[in-house]
Design a protein around this nucleic acid. Sequence first.
DNA 1: TCTGGGGTCCTAGGACCC
DNA 2: TCTGGGGTCCTAGGACCC
Length: 415
Amino acid sequence: MNDKIIMHVDVNSAYLSWEAAYRLQRGERVDLRDIPSVVGGDEESRHGIVLAKSIPAKKLKIHTGESLFSARRKCPNLVVVPVRYHLYMMCHNAMLNILRDFSPIVQVYSIDEAFLDYTGVQQVHGNPVDAAYRLKDRIKNELGFTVNVGISSNKLLAKMASELKKPDRVHTLFPDEIKCKMWPLPVGELFMVGRATAPKLYRMNIFTIGDLANSDPELLKYFLKSWGKLIQDYANGIEDSPVAANARTLIKGIGNSTTIPFDVDTLDEARKVLLSLCEMVGMRLRQAGFCAKLVSVYLRSADLSGRSHQRKYGVATDDTYKIFHLAAELMEEIWTGEALRGMGVHVSELVPNDFLQMSVFDAFNEKRRRLDQSIDEIRMRFGTKSVVRSIFLNSGLAPITGGVTEDFQMMSSFL
DNA sequence: TCTGGGGTCCTAGGACCC
DNA sequence: TCTGGGGTCCTAGGACCC
């Protein structure tokens, strides 16, 4: 029997904890984690939602993703702090360094979660539960924030374990503990049972993870197709994907989207927003070393409805201008002229750009390609605002748009 | 309640070919 | 010819995660 030992490490209220730890370190007296507080986007530019919340805020029924307006109504003296991605990346990296002291096989799952394969290192680091406590305490003492560690024999159970009681805890959820620790939980807490699936399960009289584990597979198949099998396996703790170390997992696509600070209703403005998104997408695409064959555009209306449109290129490209050209075409094909609240550009069907066959006759494109590369280099060195297109001056729009613009260097090194 | 932004994977239906 | 079926590709949308 070669049972694995997998750990899942999850930072408690990540963005908020990191901000709190940073502030304490800077001499501030109040710990944001002890009061109702949230990390929120900028309301002025219509990004005003809750990105992370303290436990006291959670107790006031403030949810991640809800508007700051609504959150303040639940708690008038709510403390709202802005996002600081650069800080998050530093905390993320510092935490990874500690995790790697405990196992060479670490899979980054997100900015605040990672899996660790502990199977082969028990002789070195000892009993997994003891090791998990040491790991957790090292992070707390050295970095100033707390994590939950889940331990089991596969990734799914380890992840479910880390979600049990928070914060600052170590939990095991081995197969023989599923019945008592996982089955009583509401079915919506199971990984992969979200806001659409949960109500369907309720209608089938399935309310807990245990109900799902023991329900009729045929019935699940009938209502949920292959999804039913997947979540029933999960409810029974069945999952066996490997911890993919040096998780340089192949990226499938690159996209950026934005909510525009004001409703856009002219073609000219819409094209500018699109261009600023294409700048970001193109830059990331080139930096990742890919060309894309498929371009997709997403429009979000003022009424929050959205639609998308995509088209495949004959040849793959990483040329900002070409991507923009097609994106604009796609946008114009589906836009009926209604006020737009947001837009997005996504490219996929990526091919490594070192195999790119440049057309010898395409001298102009080659020139533009070199220009893209030069601008990329300057932006990487001096910041994304060091080179901007003049049409954005006084437009009220960002010349380059994407959620991580300010910290582009940091975030891209993470991906 | 006037709801971001980054991803991945799956599915249904239509087009088109044989 | 007015009727089949299988396979593949494409597109839009929906589900989930953080």
